[in-house]
Simulated scan of single mutants.
Amino acid sequence: MKILKVIPRQSIGRIKIGMNREEVYSILGMPKKQETIEWIGDYHIEYDNDKVVFIEVPNSIADTHFVLFNGVDLFGTEAKLLVKYISEYGKYDETDEELGYSYSFKTLGIGLWRPSIFEYEMINSEEFQELDEENQLDEIQNLYFESVCVFQENYYD
């Protein structure tokens, strides 16, 4: 397993905020089509004036990489615990309409997202128990975040 370090407002692995396209392509290879927002391998990258302003990776990268913030596995830590941990370093936007699904730590330049809110306490709920096994397994995946990103200052302003 490889390690991808998430450094607030700076980088995920070797891809850094502020890099130009050529630098990104020399590391990840060429995308199928050059656009403002590109998927290259496991990376989702957004550019402004040909400079990286946003980097995101999905939890599927956890099959081959540990994605770490200050030594904590971002895809292997329960969402509720992860938010609490990262909150020790910076505050998340409490006014976010998607709160629970997404957390934007603007002072850190880190974001987290999951498609559905699920907590361990919900396992015993009648609604969860009525789901078939496949749907239960899908819901349990939402205990964790599906993607993590870093972004430049003022990205969400």
Rank of each mutant, 00 (worst) to 15 (best):
I3D: 12
L4Q: 08
V6Y: 01
I7E: 10
R9T: 01
R9C: 01
R9G: 00
R9Q: 13
S11C: 10
I12R: 11
I15D: 04
M19E: 02
N20G: 05
E22W: 00
E23R: 00
E23F: 00
V24T: 04
V24D: 02
V24F: 00
V24G: 00
Y25S: 01
S26R: 09
L28I: 02
L28Q: 02
G29Y: 00
M30H: 05
M30K: 12
K33P: 01
K33D: 07
T36I: 12
T36L: 11
W39K: 15
D48W: 03
N49A: 10
K51P: 04
K51W: 05
K51V: 06
V52A: 03
F54V: 07
V57I: 15
S60K: 14
I61V: 15
I61S: 14
D63M: 14
T64K: 15
H65R: 07
H65A: 13
F66H: 10
V67Y: 12
V67D: 09
L68C: 07
F69T: 00
G71D: 08
G71C: 05
V72S: 03
V72M: 12
L74E: 05
F75N: 11
G76N: 06
T77G: 05
E78P: 00
K80S: 14
L81Q: 11
L81V: 00
K84E: 15
I86Q: 02
I86N: 01
S87L: 08
S87A: 06
E88T: 11
Y89D: 04
G90I: 08
G90C: 09
K91L: 04
K91E: 12
D93G: 06
E94I: 11
T95F: 05
T95A: 07
T95R: 09
E97Y: 13
L99G: 03
Y101T: 10
Y101R: 11
S102V: 04
F105Q: 03
F105N: 03
K106S: 02
K106Y: 01
K106N: 09
K106I: 01
T107F: 02
L108R: 05
G109K: 06
G109T: 08
G111L: 04
L112W: 03
R114P: 12
P115I: 04
I117C: 12
E119S: 05
E121L: 02
N124A: 06
N124R: 02
E127Y: 06
F128E: 09
Q129C: 08
E130Q: 15
L131E: 13
E133Q: 13
E134G: 05
Q136A: 06
L137T: 11
L137G: 04
I140G: 03
I140Y: 09
Q141Y: 05
Q141S: 12
N142P: 02
N142H: 11
L143V: 02
L143C: 02
Y144Q: 08
Y144E: 09
Y144C: 10
F145C: 09
E146R: 09
S147N: 14
V150H: 06
V150Q: 03
Q152K: 15
